[in-house]
Design a protein around this nucleic acid. Structure first.
Ligand SMILES: [Zn+2]
Ligand SMILES: [Zn+2]
Ligand SMILES: [Zn+2]
Ligand SMILES: [Zn+2]
Length: 567
DNA sequence: TGAAACGTGACT
DNA sequence: AGTCACGTTTCA
């Protein structure tokens, strides 16, 4: 995963190399589109991207859907900005970004990133392609196309019990923010995951290469070569196709496809990676390539082997009715009544042989399966039996109907304690920011609050804003004052006076941090919100333990996840 | 002064 | 936990 700028770096002035630089001009490659004449991409209407179609065709060609209607994809409008992303994920969220000039990964906060992105005078090119946001408020604004949800192994194979606890491969929802001129060199997404990819705003330019055995061999050699980034991989293969994506387009990349990405315009993209039953062989193939290339764990599909065990157990359950999952909701309805198609059986054979041949160090039971050998034996028996001839995938079809798991809502914190009930200032009403994407939407006319409005023929009693217009960054009233320095000679009106005011989430007091003594604890849910020094001290008192509140239980610590989707 | 709609509390 | 109703705040 290397990032490069669109232009050649000087290689004539130094006989020492700082870092492997491009030996070609990416823009030149973009303009040389006549050279890459493959014909793989299917252009479809959203409603044509159906489960039936994918199961029939096997999802082996990239698909382009220009208008999202029919995909049942939920995304914000093209007015959604990087600032809105910040409002959702929090200013202090750490991002992994790539510095284009040096091609190195580095970290910055969401706030730093937003300031960088919103300033048109950019000194350096950076590219952010690895913000997984399913643990943030953004989660509710983005949902993958319906057909993807019915294929994604995380949704249909991973135990719901674990997923609802946040214990699952978190690669389903990425936000990609790319500056004009960014480039991601050729790669295969981890474990040969397929990708859905929706352009909220901007443009993307893909080079696409099918994962034929020849191309995979070339790719293997190329990623292990010393001069990988001096060679434009598309020039090594016999067939490559380019595709230019624009605002509103949705793109689907099949398993294993080798692709490079250029960013012709600043762009905001939502997308996700997924494993699925139509590409079992490819997942194993790519996993083996990654292992032999010693790809670091951070850049691989998390819990891939665990996932294979869960997949195997799901098929064994569907076909034989036997259950190897230690869980309450272990069995599917009508389990035991399904057969395997030839393609399913072939894929499952790949998985069986992969799991069987794991070195004993890696043959570790996933959390909810104990009897690995029993499962393997039953799986082997299962694939020996006759499979449904001609029938398209059956067990998979049945599994695709598995219900979506509900996330536990964020627990409303702090039961009102006796100490809290005292000296609480009256709540200050916050106002819509009028800048974020929801603030600038028009009324949907369909939600409960809209229907209540007189303008939509309702009684007008509820007096609430349209749910689609819920502000992402509710601001303090413009007449808010510092409770400490406000007075006749206060410097109200100065720009900083308003901007730096902080409201305490617990006692509701509004003060300047500089006027309060002690350290407050800034909150990221709303602008200008913190726990004031007084309340921080009070909490420390109440808890007895002044420093750390409560040590996190092992189960609460998020499992390690990859640093990023590779586009 | 009127329109918009926030925060809260009662009800289910 | 979700729905509904209302007094009241804020802005223009
Ligand atoms: Zn509405
Ligand atoms: Zn807003
Ligand atoms: Zn002050
Ligand atoms: Zn406070």
């Amino acid at each position: 995963m290397k990032e490069k700028g669109g232009s050649i770096y000087h290689d004539d002035e130094a006989d020492f190399e700082v870092a492997p630089e491009t030996a070609y001009d990416v823009l030149e490659k973009v303009n040389d589109s006549g050279k890459y004449t493959g014909d793989f991409v299917q252009e479809l209407a959203g409603s044509d991207v159906s489960l039936d179609r994918l199961m029939e065709e096997g999802f082996t060609r990239p698909m382009l859907v220009k208008q999202k209607n029919g995909l049942e994809l939920r995304v914000p409008s093209e007015n959604f900005t990087v600032t809105d992303v910040m409002s959702c994920v929090g200013k202090r969220r750490q991002l992994q970004v790539f510095r284009v000039a040096t091609q190195e990964a580095c970290e910055m906060t969401m706030k730093q990133w937003t300031d960088y992105f919103n300033n048109p005078d950019r000194q350096d090119l950076y590219n952010c392609i690895s913000l997984e946001f399913s643990d943030t408020r953004l989660d509710h604004y983005v949902e993958s196309p319906a057909v993807i949800r019915r294929l994604d192994w995380v949704d249909i194979m991973w135990p719901a019990e674990l997923k609802s606890q946040g214990d699952y491969p978190r690669v389903q929802k990425y936000c990609l923010m790319s500056t004009k001129g960014s480039y991601t060199d050729f790669h295969i997404d981890f474990a040969g995951t397929s990708v859905w990819y929706h352009i909220i705003k901007g443009e993307k330019y893909f080079w696409l290469i099918p994962p034929t055995p020849e191309n995979l061999n070339l790719y293997k050699k190329w990623i292990q070569s010393d001069n990988q980034h001096e060679t434009f991989f598309a020039d090594l293969v016999s067939e490559c196709q380019t595709v230019h994506l624009e605002t509103g387009n949705t793109f689907f990349i099949p398993s294993g496809w080798i692709h490079g990405v250029y960013t012709p315009q600043d762009s905001l993209v939502f997308g996700g990676n997924f494993l699925h039953s139509l590409a079992m062989d490819m997942h194993i193939k790519v996993c083996k390539i990654e292992s032999s290339a010693r790809i670091p764990k951070n850049n691989r599909y998390p819990f891939f082997v665990d996932m294979l065990w869960y997949v195997l157990r799901s098929y064994v359950n569907m076909v034989t009715g036997k259950n190897y999952l230690e869980s309450d909701d272990a069995s599917q309805p009508e389990a035991g009544n399904f057969a395997l198609s030839k393609r399913e059986a072939t894929g499952i054979c790949s998985i069986i042989s992969f799991l069987e041949n794991l070195p004993s160090t890696k043959k570790k039971a996933p959390k909810l399966i104990k009897d690995l050998d029993g499962l393997l034996n039953d799986a082997k028996e299962m694939v020996k039996k006759e499979w449904l001839e001609g029938q398209i995938i059956s067990a998979t079809m049945a599994l695709s109907k598995k219900k979506k798991v509900e996330k536990p809502k964020k627990v409303k914190r702090s039961v009102p304690k006796i100490s809290d009930c005292q000296n609480k200032a009256p709540k200050h009403r916050r106002m819509k920011c009028k800048k974020c994407e929801p603030c600038n939407r028009s009324e949907c006319g369909e939600c409960n609050f809209c229907k209540d409005m007189k303008k939509f023929g309702g009684p007008g009693r509820m007096k609430q804003s349209c749910v689609m217009r819920a502000c992402l960054a509710m601001r303090l009233s413009s007449r808010a004052e510092c409770g400490l320095c406000a007075g006749p000679d206060a410097s109200a009106g100065e720009e900083d006076y308003q901007k730096s005011l902080m409201e305490c989430a617990e006692c509701n007091e509004i003060v300047h941090p500089r006027c309060a003594k002690g350290e407050g604890k800034i909150k990221d849910d709303l602008p200008n919100l913190w726990t004031c020094p007084k309340c921080v001290a009070k909490n420390a008192d109440t808890n007895g333990d002044p420093e750390a509140k409560r040590p996190k239980l092992e189960a609460e610590v998020a499992p390690p996840q990859p640093l990023g989707m590779i586009n």
